[in-house]
Amino acid sequence: MQTVTSHTSQRGVMTTSQQDTAEKAAQLLAQIAESRSRQAFSELFSHFAPKLQAYGTRQFGNEQTAMDLVQETMTNVWHKAHLFKADKGSPSTWIFTIARNIRFDLLRKNKKRKDDISADELWPILAEQNDNLDDDYALDQDILLQEISHYYGQLPDAQRIVVEKIYVEGKSQQEVSDSLGIPLGTVKSRTRLALKKLKELIVEHD
């Protein structure tokens, strides 16, 4: 639960008991993800359902819609517990973002639009393959890191520096853009060219 602590030390407001609660909730989510534990889910449910119900009631001013929000939010938690990442925030914040999305859908459902856009499309927080998506040119699977480290020295300087920062130092393209003071588009095109060149080098030497 390192992140919870570091997040909050920044703001310095979370009490120890809240931290304990967050830790407990994270454990329950892990149990649900690993073993589909109904016991763990019931425990999580009795903690969060009344809170969600209060949120829903204040948002909709309607008991039934509030209950729909509780049910749909917790249904997502049950099926998607494996998508909770403890290093990205607290369990309650994750559950809140799910509830926020359900609220968006319920508000629009009332407007009865055909082929309506859903919150799952607009905030893809529950998408299965959401890792590494920020990096447009995530390392091609057919180029091993080892091979890169072997050949990147042969790239032109401008490309080599970008590849070094991204694949050796693990920086994002945005960070590279910031640290070198060049536009993100340039970082992208240099990465693209460098990977192309590396592929050629690797094939040549195979």
Binding site: Q18, P50, K51, L52, R58, S90, S92, I95, F96, A99
Partner: peptide, 15 residues
């Protein structure tokens, strides 16, 4: 989102 969660969920005492 953390702030909103505190406001909308964490502050609710019925648990």
């Amino acid at each position: 989102e953390e702030e909103l969660c505190k406001k909308h969920l964490d502050s609710i005492v019925e648990t």
